[in-house]
Nucleic acid binder design. Structure first.
Lengths: 230, 230
DNA sequence: CGCGATTTGTGCACCTCTTCACAAGCGCCT
DNA sequence: AGGCGCTTGTGAAGAGGTGCACAAATCGCG
């Protein structure tokens, strides 16, 4: 499940705070989900809770990390050292959670050779050698949209089967390759939608707004962390 | 729906390519979704397609932008000008899609006054004045996790009701405030999970792997753009 | 040793989202 | 004008996720 990483983060916070055990209720409220859902999620990876007590924090961390394949430090290659790539290269949230940016690559010759946060930018054509040398398991694409597909093809060609794509475009990849997409502008647009809707509802409280602003049903956007009580 | 922004991006690409109309099939395959789903999505905002022909690209763009509230350029305030914030400030993907980063703020006095991409960093305590002056409608949090909740509280206090949170933590906000979260490490962990699973399945093809690696059912992670045929 | 409080694990109902399949509508060609 | 092919819009079926409510299990205390 995609919620496991969130549980893991909350568990690390709890461990740092000195807790040895957590109840499903406590962990659920820390993550902002239903406790039954959390229990069901955890039960899917083999019951590791003690009834009447809760879950052993350290044990659960080990289990989740094992499931997520975080027992080994994974090496990622970052392609595209522009604005965003530059920041990602220096983002310490990766290293602290078991990911090591092992290589920086770019297609722009003027950027090759530049040193960023202790790593030298290499040309994207060196990808095959880099992937082999550093045993890359994940590729991150932070190039402009027009270049993303070509980079993805290169990554796939050298055996990378997991890609995190920051470019605002859809990548087509063969079966067996996982692509996750992060589009920062889309997130803003979703917020804009909600903002627009709220404004319309206030302006037209009786009629409920036009057919455009008052979409039927729940206009639910997944992943929206909204209004967590207490 | 959270898919509307993706449709919008594909439509812009089609418009740039000179297309005047699109069939649901064509647009669906460009975005990577089922055509029936796309039609149902579009029908929710009032039918704007012509049977036998398809959808008018320009008209559909207008409609979606109207629904998303993108007719006006929205001003966003970015709090936290560290590694990530720096990159976001310079990310041109925002401006090109109707979002203007109107203010940069930070709690670190040594950063206040710094000029980044034409904007001067102001202290986060000036938030009330900044929000009023620039008519901010969205706040972006790019601070370290420990500072995020305080910043969120400040944003809410000055009337911001839409927050995009890059800090790896759960924010608690009152009802009526929308929070969207982007956690880059979580995305990598999800990829790591898939990678780990693929490796296990290959290593243990007969048994299907341990109970840990072979989660029951679909181990489906939403938002995963996987293996788009053709 | 037994009992009560507490918490996990889970069956069941519900609800949303997805997908198929098809009728209705539109334009074009004859 | 009429028919034909193509595309939209939508009803219905299916799948999957969610949350409630409760039985089973464990610990601590008298």
């Amino acid at each position: 499940m995609s919620r496991l990483p969130e549980y893991l983060r909350a568990l690390h916070a709890l461990a740092d705070a000195g807790h040895e055990t957590v109840s499903s209720e406590g962990l659920a409220s820390a993550v902002g989900v239903n406790s039954a859902k959390l229990r069901k999620d955890l039960s899917h990876l083999g019951s590791y809770g003690t009834r009447g007590v809760g879950y052993d924090v350290a044990l659960l961390i080990d289990q989740i990390e094992s499931v997520l394949g975080l027992t080994q430090c994974r090496a990622v290659a970052l392609v595209g050292v522009g604005n965003l790539g530059h920041a990602l290269a220096g983002y310490d949230g990766f290293a602290s959670r078991g990911f090591q940016i092992a290589a920086l690559l770019d297609a722009d010759p003027s950027r090759v050779g530049e040193e960023i946060h202790g790593l030298v930018v290499r040309h994207v054509d060196e990808l095959p050698r880099v992937v082999a040398e550093e045993s890359i398991s994940i590729g991150v694409i932070a190039t402009p949209a027009p270049a993303a597909q070509a980079v993805a093809d290169q990554l796939v060609a050298v055996g990378v089967t997991s890609i995190l794509n920051f470019a605002p475009c859809v990548l087509s990849v063969p079966d067996g390759v996982d692509v996750r997409k992060v589009d920062l502008a889309i997130e803003l647009q979703i917020l804009s939608f909600h903002e627009h809707r709220k404004a319309s509802l206030i302006a037209l409280p009786a009629t409920g707004g036009s057919a455009l602003t008052a979409l039927p049903g729940g206009l639910a956007t997944p992943d929206t962390q909204e209004a967590i009580g207490t």
